[in-house]
Amino acid sequence: MINKMRTSFLATPYAIWVMICTILPLFYILGYALTNDAGSFTLSNLTAIADPVHLKSLWLSIRVAFFTTAICLLLAYPVALILHNLKLTNKGLVVFLFILPMWMNFMLRILAWQIILSNNGILNSILSTLGLPTLHILYTETAVTLGMVYDFLPYMILPIYNALSKINDQVVEAAADLGANWWTTFTKVTLPLSKDGIISGIIMVFVPALSSFVVSNLLGGGKVLLIGNVIEQEFTLARNWNLGSGLSIILMIFVLLSMSVMNKVDDSENGGMPV
């Protein structure tokens, strides 16, 4: 018999670590958010979100994050499905192919998109050789969204692929045997059973997309100001840590809200369907 009490003490260093490096920093950011320069209590750092400039950035961030997530989902689901249908014996290889790009520096990969998308860049040379009209999307919201889709796509593919691998093939075969066509099988069996993967994919894409500031910096060229850019500038340029912390707290609230919405979707659908 394993001495459970004694073994669970192995988690003590980690528990202390969590207190210091996870929980305590959150109190610090809350402390800064709720005080002013002089250290007295104020809510103005939080209400500053109502400033039209901040509100515009927040709205833009939500829009970009929404489109990024939606496009990632639309692109990723077929990829996961096709990979799943290949019935690879070596599942690690799939993960490997999507993780590998991360070993090329993230900043350089986004920079490469700058080179690809620029007015006399690679994409436009290809388009003009083909006799197609050229695109001028660099330094626009479209380019920022494209960069984010590129950066976060693996985070959508992998959880969906994992969820699909867990589906018992016999369930799918049973549906087909009972006369369901491909589409019915997909919408009634495969899709509902892969819902957990979709939800974790959405969270893993939406949260970083909502808060990113590097992609918008590189591909937005300073013209696309997301809430992440505003927060970063408060810390680096304006040196107003209190306001930066206040806006971070607002960002956190939006992250928590979007996650609780996703979890609600998860629960309500679970309740309606015997799993």
Binding site: P25, Y28, I29, V207, S211, G228, E232, W241, L251, V255
Partner: peptide, 14 residues
Amino acid sequence: LNADIVTGISLMLL
């Protein structure tokens, strides 16, 4: 689950 920027800032403040 937290945004990277929030994690980074909160650790810096600490």
